[in-house]
Design a protein around this nucleic acid. Structure first.
Lengths: 123, 123
DNA sequence: AATTTTATGCAACTCAGTTGCATTTCCAAG
DNA sequence: CTTGGAAATGCAACTGAGTTGCATAAAATT
């Protein structure tokens, strides 16, 4: 499994370690980071903007040139949901500003965890 | 200068180190982190979602309960601009999803750097 | 084949943030 | 006061993601 293949297969952004595990081969972490940097520089991959102590990568294929799909991070199950179906919102920037990349991040409860919370409350 | 004072005075999110410098006093970094965690837990301060190897903090006062003001990070001058005047965009989440916090991050060129780039090209 | 270029690996490093534990400061009961 | 226990502060040592320098291996070029 190639590095890009691992990322395309996943439905969420992956860390360097998760990518390595999905690839199966045990390449050196330095090599992995170097390849990731090349992919990012080439614009094939980018880093997801998510509150996390480690960098998370995802293929740029799921985003338009300037507007990345929104991410929803659930506080209950800690899953990251890529909202690729949602059209990214646009805002009016001050004069002269040139937007090159935009990411929207949301935190809260996903539908499953919202339901679970309601059940707990009603007992 | 208090920790919160330092953050309110700044027009951009600050790192632990920047906060310490603005406070003047030389408190231990462990103490600073502990205080920051308390402020975050109390909802008085939150971390800005910006591509950065260090955590950046800002007062929650500049945001509404669920929607944080957008940030624009300039690739030219590396300044972070808090777009507090812009109304944060809203998106329609899938059924059952409950949004608790949202942040929009933008990267590109600020007006000053866009002008500078045009001048360079025309020479 | 010889030589240059490029990719890989290892070990040691950097640096933000954390943890354990000792010390100080605060504050309330005696 | 002062004493005893809780909360805040500090120090040093640790953790872990990511990086750097340098040696080695694999390609590509002549």
């Amino acid at each position: 499994m190639s590095m890009l293949g691992a990322m395309l297969e996943a439905k969420e952004p992956l860390s360097r370690e998760q990518i390595a595990r999905r690839m199966g081969e045990n390449a050196n972490k330095v090599t992995l980071y170097r390849t990731l940097h090349s992919l990012v520089e080439a614009g094939i991959v980018h880093t997801a903007l998510i509150r996390n102590r480690v960098q998370l990568y995802e293929p740029s294929a799921h985003c338009s040139e300037h507007l990345c799909h929104p991410h929803f991070v659930c506080r209950g199950c800690h899953k990251t949901i890529c909202l690729t179906e949602i059209t990214p919102p646009t805002v009016d920037l001050p004069d002269g500003f040139r937007l090159e990349r935009q990411q929207l991040q949301m935190e809260g409860l996903c539908s499953t965890c919202t339901m679970a919370e309601h059940e707990t409350q009603s007992i």
